[in-house]
Design a protein around this nucleic acid. Structure first.
Length: 264
DNA sequence: ATCGGTACCTGCACGC
DNA sequence: TGCGTGCAGGTACCGA
């Protein structure tokens, strides 16, 4: 479900929780805790205040005061919801000094973990695509022997790009998803850099893409999906040249592209 | 260090 | 109506 623009939208929607206290916590699903103990986690967060909510690519880091961090990743189907009824896929309930925050995740690919300090995984991630310089972006592509699609999906290259925005960015840049990353010339890399940033900004402005069930913490859907030019449009005419959009598997993921407009 | 392949879950749309 | 198949915004882990 959620890539950088969706996670950014979720983070913005839970920003009002800053300053509130976690008065009670219940964790129900072992899988999303990734080895954490439910009762221990409840004890670690209970009584603490939400000091700050931050996004690292697709990860959410909730700073607790006086100490500690709750790291949240939404996986494919994770949702943070302000209030609302808890259902069969509600895996965590945080009772706040005002309101309730639920974690819901039908496929359980997401995760909720407590850390005493900023988790190592977050430090290993690549830079934010909206903050990285072109020189750094280009330097990171050098010598890579994988497809540009796979590289864009690699969170240690840049953080936050997923399947939708990789395909949309490659279309806008006119680059074939299977082009070898390390072979892209400076000029084409420049176009890709611009395309990634443009797509992400537009998607954030649209509140993300709601393909099936993505919603922010207030239950609002995004509408960037209506601006998708290739993702989910297999067989439809390309918006530039009218030739049919194709779908192939690259890096084990569906990749949507125009064979005429996107060159290797 | 880097790369490709696999595993992890549930739900939904589809064809029969 | 039910059943099998394929597909889905994700990452982690394995061996080569």
């Amino acid at each position: 479900m959620p890539e950088l623009p969706e996670v950014e939208t979720v983070v913005r929607s839970i920003a009002p929780l800053v300053g509130r206290r976690i008065v009670g916590a219940e964790f129900r699903c072992l899988r999303v805790l990734r080895g954490g103990d439910p009762d221990e986690m409840a004890a670690q967060v209970s009584g603490k205040r939400i000091a700050r909510v931050e996004r690292y690519g697709k990860f959410i880091l909730i700073h607790l005061a006086p100490s500690g961090y709750l790291m949240v990743h939404l996986g494919m189907t994770g949702k943070l919801l302000l209030g609302g009824p808890s259902g069969k896929h509600t895996h965590a309930v945080l009772t706040l000094s005002r309101g309730v925050l639920l974690y819901d995740d039908s496929r359980q690919f997401g995760r909720l973990q407590y850390f005493d300090s900023v988790p190592q995984r977050l430090q290993e991630l690549g830079p934010e695509p909206l903050e990285v310089s072109f020189e750094d972006f280009f330097a990171r592509m050098k010598g890579r022997k994988t497809s540009i699609k796979a590289l864009l999906l690699n969170q240690n290259f840049v953080r936050g790009v997923g399947n939708i925005y990789a395909d949309e960015s490659l279309f806008r840049a006119g680059i074939h998803p299977q082009a070898m990353a390390g072979r892209l010339k400076r000029e084409r890399a420049r176009r890709l850099y611009g395309a990634v940033r443009e797509v992400l900004r537009e998607a954030i402005d649209a509140g993300g893409s709601s393909i099936s069930d993505y919603v922010d913490a207030e239950g609002r859907r995004g509408w960037f999906q209506i601006q998708h030019r290739v993702y989910g449009r297999e067989g439809e005419p390309c918006s530039k040249c009218r030739s049919p959009i194709r779908r192939v598997v690259v890096a084990q993921r569906s990749s949507h592209f125009c064979a005429k407009c996107q060159r290797r």
